[in-house]
Design a protein around this nucleic acid. Structure first.
Lengths: 241, 241
DNA sequence: TGACACCGATGTGTGCAGACATCAAAACTC
DNA sequence: GAGTTTTGATGTCTGCACACATCGGTGTCA
């Protein structure tokens, strides 16, 4: 299912476009792709349609399939994010996601305090306490798992489906941070307490405290990570189009 | 180009799925769609592939094309947003976008003050001043145009491509707000000044002031709009999957 | 007799090959 | 240079073979 031919074609072309191997403006012909990937026309066509909907290519009659500049890519698409994380732009992608997270999570905490269903609030408190325990014990894998669950619950509890959809990407960044050895064996006590503070503020419906505690977590996270990507160039996308 | 057959098929099916006419779990057969839409298999197959990549449907052999629940849709995809804005979920979608905006823009202002290229800073100041003029004159269409340009410049100036990508959606919300008569003929003086404050803070690289002024704009905007969508039900997306 | 495992029939998506239609870039004519 | 024709790529349609999940029948065993 995941290894259907058109899926593999999407994967192949998407990764090569985003890695820069197929640069913006590069023109491919469907026929060339057919015998390059050894698949039939319909497979290529279906793959190109999907890439088109992601903003990676456009097709023009009498010209072919043109690779679009990165400013046209949909930066919120999970596949695009995955391809960027796998390539040279990994650092820039992680920074973008971290900036988005640090903007969104405090807002999500505020909304969760106002709107989250009761069982979710209770679960959030439980997870925050479990995180503190795992942090004290230095159980890194367990801590990562709980960390992901905590932030997923928070985003989901906001009742905003766009916030909730960031769960997957947040999991990626947290996992990436751990895998890259950016997490100490024992998370700082203050950070552990802030997670508990967020959960308890949400549990009692205190929106202002929830936002403030979440904001503290995010500011600390950003300042921890910021030195690892200072060398990443920023991209300024023109306003028109 | 925009009226190619497969594009029309995507439009037709996407709108019907998101409107709820084709509910989650509903199963369609490719052959049925062929003679319902009077197009060939290749057109249907390409359309279904795109809808699949948006999370709207899944295909299973021997079963057919199954409509997925809304929790699986990609809420950041521009097409999905457009379909939701066109249907019953319009209110909920506008609220989601407004919440996202109010989370992101202050962060974007802070980043723009630190990173935006000089010409963009100057343009931002010009636009803010032009907004104030248009606001005083009661020139509503001109004001809307400048408002969109201002917030686009701000998001673009952050140097975060995810923030910049929200330009289009922000334009939608601002336009929608004006069309729905939620904007007074003469914007409040304080809001006009806050726009100037944001621009000037960014121009002089004052990140803290830029965020604070932007935050004031967003809080005012949210409190203005919140009463229009209090009846919209919130959706809580389960964390697992 | 009833419960259960096996296995083949069936229906549906997946992939392939080839034809013709369409349309915009490029070449040509005046 | 403007208008026209040619050309070559994508767009659309169709028939076929195949893969494979589901369903129902058959056989076995208790």
């Amino acid at each position: 299912m995941t290894s259907s031919l058109h899926h593999r074609a999407i994967e192949n072309l998407g990764a090569r476009i985003i890695s820069g191997e197929l640069p913006a403006g590069h023109i491919m012909l469907a026929e060339k792709l057919e015998d390059e990937l050894k698949v039939s026309r319909s497979v290529i066509r279906e793959a190109v349609r999907v890439l088109q909907s992601l903003g990676l290519v456009e097709t023009t009659k009498r010209v072919g399939i043109r690779v679009l500049p990165s400013s046209r890519w949909n930066p919120f698409d999970p596949q695009v994010i995955r391809w960027r994380l796998a390539g040279d732009a990994r650092g820039a992608q992680l920074r973008s996601l971290a900036e988005l997270r640090s903007a969104v999570e405090p807002a999500a905490a505020e909304l969760a305090a106002q709107n989250a269903p009761a069982p979710l609030r209770l679960e959030l408190v439980d997870v925050a306490h479990a995180m503190r325990d795992a942090g004290h014990k230095g159980d890194v894998p367990r801590f990562l798992e709980l960390d992901i669950q905590f932030h997923s619950l928070l985003l989901s509890g906001s009742g905003n489906e766009m916030f909730a959809n960031l769960m997957g990407q947040v999991a990626e960044t947290l996992t990436g941070r751990t895998v890259h050895g950016l997490m100490p064996d024992h998370p700082h006590e203050a950070a552990l307490q802030w997670h508990v503070d967020v959960a308890e503020a949400i549990a009692r419906g205190d929106a202002v405290s929830a936002r403030e505690a979440s904001d503290r977590i995010m500011r600390r996270t950003m300042s921890q990570m910021s030195d690892t990507w200072t060398e990443q160039p920023r991209v300024f996308i023109p306003v028109d189009r």
